[in-house]
Design a protein around this nucleic acid. Structure first.
Lengths: 131, 131
DNA sequence: CCTTGACCTTCCAGTGACTGGAACCCTTAT
DNA sequence: ATAAGGGTTCCAGTCACTGGAAGGTCAAGG
């Protein structure tokens, strides 16, 4: 299939598929006219990548996962290790966002939001912090 | 004060402070030898930036906030609007991370994590999805 | 006076994961 | 013959820094 066919099939943008080839995640063949030709294996790998990316795995993690995916002698422990590291990263980011959210929500609550200049949000941002 | 002094005072890296000047967030003076010279106002603006960035505001949001900060005729409503937009963005990201987390946690739970190749994590990533 | 080391300067390049656009080639239908 | 709609490459931009090279400045010690 051509690139737009595999793009439709996987839901990935054409540009992204070319990018994935650039960085060596897939190696589609070429037809006589220079067009890329995608096999079923290529399509599977791209679908795999799309799903892994949607779960937030980095490109390098995806590379490792694809490696394990095509290794019949893999140990599921290796997959689990990658997934757990990613889960920890997600939890770290979530905690950071939650802290931001809580602080910000309090400040927004305290702000009158009228045409006067007094503003607890700006006051917080400008406050001297003792290190 | 010199750049390293203001870096220590604000907790911002020297490189970041130079970058903030590049993009016009601050305009420190210069001494005869070409060194930057930071006034108290510069220090305050940098501290403000550091705090706003730590709450996740984008550089462009910070630019707007700084503008309001130095505008005695501001309306707190304008600050609140920016903050609320940012809060919504944080909530959107948090929801996305939560979805990822839940899916990933289930998959990790289901994975034996031994030396066998069978792996529910890879199975999920490779699963055909009906569009 | 000379050197050493800690500052400071500018400029260029790289990060992650794409995305947009220009300029051009190929295929298919009218 | 031409026009629409594929495909190709390559370059630049995104965001918010960060690293490094090459070189100027300053204060202290010998």
């Amino acid at each position: 299939m051509n690139i737009s066919d595999v793009a439709t099939a996987t839901g990935l943008p054409v540009k992204t598929i070319r990018y994935y080839e650039d960085i060596g995640l897939i190696t589609p063949g070429r037809k006589g006219n220079g067009y890329r030709w995608f096999s079923e294996t290529d399509r599977h790998r791209l679908a795999f990548l799309g799903r892994a990316r949607s779960l937030g795995f980095s490109i390098e993690a995806c590379r490792s996962l694809l490696q394990l995916y095509s290794d019949r002698d893999r140990a599921s422990a290796d997959v689990k290790t990658i997934a757990r590291a990613h889960l920890e990263e997600i939890d770290r980011k979530r905690a950071e966002l939650t802290d931001m959210r809580d602080t910000l929500a309090h400040l927004i609550d305290a702000c009158a939001g009228n045409d006067r200049p007094d503003c607890p949000i700006l006051a917080d941002l400008a406050a001297e912090r003792r290190p």
